[in-house]
């Protein structure tokens, strides 16, 4: 069984992207360098804009310098959103990703996003100090990655994991 290629833009990707990151979910990203080596990082916030045509993730650029450099170089980016309490997950892939300094508006996303994440995770037994220990990031180190989603995949554990999301 091979994995479908995923939906192309215009057949529902935008709506799926818009639906997911407006809540405080666990966000993790992967990139690859020119040698095709995988890189991985945890993001601290995400948002979709332009009707789902643009996805922005914020992460600690100092802690994830290698990934940020690779994204700047190859433009390849994959982002997985997961709801910890249900394990529902969605992966967004795109190329042409760019690295930018976050805007003031984007930096302002961090606090509310973390608050929402704390609310989500304390509900399943994690403590607030623990969540802050993982998610704390110096605003000066924040980096924004912007990508135009090209495909979205359902990644909820189970036999349908990896299938393209239908409109």
């Amino acid at each position: 069984m091979t994995e479908p290629d995923g939906l192309q833009l215009g057949t529902g990707v935008g709506a799926a992207v818009l639906r997911f990151p407006d809540r405080s979910l666990s966000v993790n990203v992967a990139g690859s360098d020119r040698a095709n080596r995988p890189l991985v990082a945890r993001a601290v916030a995400a948002r979709a804009s332009c009707g789902g045509d643009r996805l922005t993730v914020l992460l600690d650029g100092r802690a994830n310098a290698e990934l940020v450099a690779a994204v700047a170089d190859t433009g390849r980016l994959a982002v997985v959103f997961s709801e910890p309490s249900t394990h529902r997950s969605l992966q967004v892939k795109g190329d042409g990703a760019v690295v930018a300094a976050p805007t003031v508006e984007e930096v302002a996303l961090i606090g509310p996003y973390l608050d929402g994440f704390i609310a989500e995770l304390t509900g399943i037994g994690f403590t607030e100090p623990f969540i802050r220990a993982v998610m704390t990031c110096d605003p000066a180190d924040l980096v924004a990655l912007h990508v135009r989603p090209a495909a979205v995949f359902d990644q909820t554990p189970g036999p349908k994991a990896g299938e393209a999301v239908q409109a």
Partner: peptide
């Protein structure tokens, strides 16, 4: 806590997923 795994397809496309 679930782990996160990154892999790359032969064409260079990255993939990211969580593991229990």
């Amino acid at each position: 806590i679930p782990a996160t795994i990154a892999t790359v397809a032969p064409d260079g496309t990255p993939n990211v997923s969580q593991l229990s």
